[in-house]
Design a protein around this nucleic acid. Structure first.
Lengths: 215, 215
DNA sequence: CGAAACATAGAACACTGTTCGATGATTGCG
DNA sequence: CGCAATCATCGAACAGTGTTCTATGTTTCG
């Protein structure tokens, strides 16, 4: 049983979303496809269990992220850790938003974020909105980055830079009068780092939260 | 051609993500499934075109959202409009994040957000991060709401409240010592409004942005 | 008129999730 | 020990999917 979802995660990690098929998974486990149905009711449950399995690891990794002087620092640290986990596993983003309240470990993570917000001076409604916003932001940005490149860039990172540069060139070739902003940030886009981009947005969100807490 | 993607959008609107199949679409159009391949190379392109088609409408709806006294007000208005469009069409969220830079109308929307940010006093990098953050937040939250209820709640909104209430009850039955935050916000969750929740998070983000612009 | 471009479908293929029924393996117990 | 009951596995089949191929009509226009 543990081997089933463990191998499912491995399969997703190696070849992505579309690679997880009952027959492929069965081949890895050295058995028939129908056998998997003894452990899991359907594919949805398989994905839920796989997601929850890696979220459990995030939970472990963020175990000590509490009790620092500034609750918002803890909040940021947890969010960054979750973001990192989804960045490494793009498939996780897609299957994360669904059933946030159903998958036990996802709920625990939600709670962990919430406990930091509890340390701020906010109304219940404000804290509910704050945690939902952080969670949504992390998942949204991470899923955004989850779009895999066309079919190249499955190897070296040099080609990744080229791919992103080609994108920027495409932007630069647009009409400057009609797309002033795209031109304005084309260079930034060309040399951007995903994690830095995420942290910048997160900091905006947290700055707004701090403003609200200090009001 | 116009009829193809138009009917595809209608199909997605009526019965959701899984209802759009080549055979079902062909039946609606009164023809064979293979005929669709004359207009579109594969299903991915069909979905891209369908997405872009409705984003075009968002573009029209937000045409006048510029030039107000406060650029951030315009930014908020555009974001809310986009959020509304995805709320009405949950399928759009899932297919929105991919190829943001490829689908022309999505790029135009990105530009429209960016032009408001240009009015703020920011570095190119800051404005790049700001627009990406707003875009990611909208899509992330909207996609989060896109998870359709189990299989009920396809009709009256009364049952929706019951469904959400059952969720809240489940939360309330957790161990208060282990889940203090979940208990703290259970009532808020039970009576929450999706749009209000979104706007609250967006306002946090925009407050942080204003802080950065005024610094 | 006739050829070239446009447009349409039916049949088949490979692949997916899923079900069913039969067949082994293991275990507990009288 | 023997044997029934549970646990576990698998092959074969089904319905449904995206996609391709090839053949056939339909329109356009020189």
């Amino acid at each position: 049983m543990e081997a089933v979802i463990s191998e499912a995660v491995a399969l997703l990690d190696e070849a992505g979303d579309s690679a997880l098929t009952f027959r492929a998974l069965a081949a890895r486990l050295g058995g028939g496809a129908a056998s998997i149905y003894w452990y899991v009711a359907n594919k949805d449950e398989l994905l839920d269990r796989a997601s929850d399995h890696v979220v459990a690891q995030v939970l472990v990794d963020t175990e000590d992220f509490h009790g620092s002087e500034d609750p918002i620092d803890d909040l940021r640290a947890i969010a960054v850790a979750l973001f990192g986990a989804i960045t490494v596993r793009p498939w996780l983003g897609a299957y994360f938003m669904r059933d946030t309240g159903v998958q036990p470990n996802a709920l625990a993570l939600y709670e962990r974020l919430g406990q930091q917000v509890l340390r701020l001076d906010l109304t219940p409604r404000q804290s509910f909105h704050a945690v939902s916003a952080v969670m949504g932001f992390v998942v949204g940005i991470a899923a955004d980055l989850g779009q895999k490149p066309p079919q190249e860039v499955v190897d070296g990172s040099v080609e990744r830079d080229e791919h992103i540069e080609r994108f920027a060139d495409q932007w630069r070739s647009l009409d400057p009068a009609e797309f002033p902003f795209v031109h304005h940030i084309a260079d930034e886009f060309a040399g951007h780092d995903d994690t830095e981009q995420f942290r910048a947005g997160l900091d905006l969100l947290l700055a707004g939260l701090r403003l609200q807490a200090d009001a």
